[in-house]
Amino acid sequence: MKNLAQLLREHPFFHGMDEEHLEFIARCGQNCIFNRGEYIARENAPADQFYVIRDGKVAVESYVPNHGSLCLQTLHSGDIFGWSWLFPPYLWTFDGRALDEVHAVRLDGKCLRDKCDEDPKLGYALMKRFARIVTDRLHTTRVQLMDVYNQQRPPLDSGQ
């Protein structure tokens, strides 16, 4: 069986990370499995972890009264779930729910936060990776907002 450092090393999120940092991060982590339908995170609950998805599908959801849970995006093998642990007040802003059996590595955000403050090099390496995730999600959200497949939209501007 592979150890955690090995699992993280193979995950695209950690590509190119210093071995020493990787070893440290692995020490903050543990393997976990979520069953289909199980919540990985609940909106407004303390966010002291994040998840490296190894296998399975996670829905990022928000609960809408009179409608139920609205899925905004799905995350898959190779994705990361959760960045709320990085910023005060360290509360989840959305629900995270397993859509099938999800295998993940849970990383202790609190432990990493402290370590990042001590070791800015690790902090920067990690922050760069999260910034990338955030911009990717923002890009996705913007394209979704453009509603490109809906052709019933008002005339375009001048294109300049």
Binding site: A59, C71, L72, Q73, T74, H76, D136, H139, T140, V143, Q144
Partner: peptide
Amino acid sequence: GHIGVITGP
């Protein structure tokens, strides 16, 4: 399937 945009997958 996925929810998001096709560029993701």
